[in-house]
C-alpha cells in the first residue's frame, strides 16, 4: 500500500434528514487530506468532527464483524469500515444502501429488515426436544459444524440485498441473506423441520425461484459467503421436495 499517497480526497455524500421538513435529498461535497491506512470509518468521522457535525452514518465494531456500516461506495455496496481510501480513486461517492428504509444521510434501518426476515424464514432452531439440563450435548461431526459455521458467518450487513435487482423491486423476496439463512438451518441436524416444512418459504418466487442467478450478491458479500453453493443446495432440495410430493400416493 502506498504510504506516499497524501492526496486531497474529494467526497460526494448523499444528504437527507427525513426528520427535517426543510431537508431535501442532495449530494454534498467535502474535501479531506488523506492519511496512511485511512479507512472510510476514519474519514467519515473526521468529516463529522471537523466539518459537518450533523452528518449521519453508522459504525459499531470498526473491524468488519458487526455489519453496521454497509453503504454504497462509488455505486457498489461495501462495508465502510474495511474500505481503505488507498483502494479508491480520489473522488469518493457515498450513498446509503438501497432496499432499506433511510434513517438519515448514510444510515439505513437494516435492523428491522433483518428481524422481519428472521421472523419470515423462522431463522431459529426448532428443537427436537426441550433442553435437558442433565444431558451431555448432542454430538455433531466437526465437518458438519464447520459447514454450518460457514453459513452462520453472515453479519447481516445488507450489502447483498442492496446489490440484488430482485430484492430491490420485490420486497417480499427473502433476498440472498434470507436464502442463506434458510440453508443454514436446513442443514443443521439439531433442527426437527423436514425439507417439506421449509417448502413454502424457499421453493417459490419469494424464495430460491425468484433469484435470477447473476450472482451480484456473492461478488459484494464482504464475508465471502458461498452464496452460489447455497442456491445450488436449495434448488437441489426443492427439486427433491417436489419429487417427493409427487411421489406421495394420492388420497
Amino acid at each position: 500500500m502506498s504510504q506516499a499517497a497524501q492526496r486531497t480526497l474529494k467526497f460526494e455524500i448523499f444528504r437527507y434528514n427525513p426528520e427535517d421538513p426543510a431537508s431535501k435529498p442532495h449530494m454534498q461535497a467535502f474535501e479531506l487530506q488523506e492519511t496512511p491506512f485511512m479507512s472510510l470509518f476514519i474519514a467519515l468521522n473526521k468529516l463529522r468532527e471537523e466539518q459537518d457535525p450533523t452528518l449521519q452514518f453508522d459504525f459499531v465494531c470498526r473491524s468488519a464483524v458487526c455489519g453496521s456500516c454497509g453503504m454504497m461506495v462509488n455505486g457498489r455496496p461495501a462495508l465502510a469500515c474495511k474500505t481503505l481510501t488507498s483502494q479508491l480513486e480520489r473522488t469518493i461517492r457515498l450513498h446509503p444502501l438501497p432496499a432499506f428504509r433511510l434513517v438519515g444521510d448514510l444510515a439505513v434501518d437494516t435492523g428491522s429488515w433483518f428481524r422481519g426476515m428472521t421472523e419470515r424464514v423462522q431463522g431459529w432452531i426448532e428443537a427436537k426436544a426441550p433442553f435437558d439440563p442433565d444431558a451431555v450435548e448432542e454430538r455433531m461431526d466437526d465437518e458438519v459444524a464447520r459447514a454450518i459455521y460457514e453459513r452462520e458467518r453472515c453479519i447481516e450487513c445488507g450489502c447483498c440485498v442492496a446489490s440484488c435487482a430482485v430484492a430491490n423491486t420485490r420486497p417480499a423476496f427473502v433476498a440472498p441473506a434470507g436464502l442463506n439463512r434458510i440453508a443454514r438451518f436446513m442443514m443443521d441436524p439439531r433442527d426437527r423441520r423436514k425439507t417439506g416444512d421449509w417448502f413454502e418459504v424457499f421453493a417459490s418466487d419469494e424464495g430460491v425461484f425468484g433469484c435470477l442467478g447473476l450472482m451480484a450478491c456473492q461478488d459484494v458479500c464482504p464475508k465471502e459467503l458461498p452464496l452460489r453453493e447455497v442456491y445450488a443446495y436449495l434448488r437441489r432440495k426443492s427439486l427433491t421436495g417436489i419429487l417427493s410430493r409427487r411421489a406421495k400416493p394420492a388420497t
Binding site: D58, V60, V65, C66, G67, T110, S112, F114, R115, E156
Partner: peptide, 10 residues
C-alpha cells in the same frame, strides 16, 4: 443498535 450489532458479536 440492532441487537446483533451489539459488541458481543465481536
Amino acid at each position: 443498535v440492532p441487537p446483533r450489532r451489539s459488541h458481543s458479536c465481536a
